[in-house]
Amino acid sequence: MKAVFIFALMTLRMLFRRRTLWGILLVILLALGAISSVPNFDVSNQGRFILDFGLFGIEIGALLLALGLAANLYPRDRETRTLMPLIAVPLSRWQYLLGRFFGAALVQAAALLVTCLGLMLILLFHGLSIPNDLLPATLLIIVEGWFLLSTVFFFSFFTSPPLNWPLTTMLFVLSQMSVAEFVNVLPSAPGLMRAVRMILPHADVFHIKDPIAHGFEIEPVYFLIAIFYGLCYSIFMLSLALAVFRGRDLK
């Protein structure tokens, strides 16, 4: 595991040195700033509006970060041949995948925490209180971000980055649907749609922006279960990604 840890740090350093991270982070923070400056709301509603759309913005930020950070990692490594000396000798394929994943996951989590901090500052700036569940909600979005990151890695082993973006976004959208909604996409084949939905994740598990915006208390055990579910699904996606990677010839 030491090799994975060192490679994750190497990935982390590399990603911090790329402009992609800073560009996406700036876009998210600007979007949060824009949300807070929407006029014509009284104090109570403005707080809800900022929280609701702010958390939504952070969630979209998680998707953008996952794609921006990871969609090009493996294809670039192959294209520039930096992969060969790594895979041939010091790292095995699972160590490469985990190292890249952990590095990107740490960067993504740090960036999302910064956006959460940005949201808190915006609330304070408007004289609003910070809900107790805002930080746990951000943690849940971070776990959702890791799930998306693992999905991006999965697609990156057999598609190009321009295809990875729509595929991951499509999975992100589909995974928000309930079983009934998903079946309605193709009502003529309900059995098939249910079978497909079975494999797709239930990303609605990570959605708690509505209750937070409306002041509902969420039971702490829910956070634990949702985080467990998200981590397990991420592990599942990573193992699928590894299965594809292990089967690939590195020409």
Binding site: K2, I6, F7, M14, T80, R81, T82, V89, P90
Partner: peptide, 26 residues
């Protein structure tokens, strides 16, 4: 191993590379 036309992540220096590879290989 020296691959044909080797390349490395160009945001790193040789010293950083050697240090990280040394840690990875214990």
């Amino acid at each position: 191993y020296i691959p044909e036309n080797p390349d490395y992540d160009d945001s790193f220096s040789p010293m950083e590379y050697l240090t990280m590879f040394a840690s990875m290989r214990d």
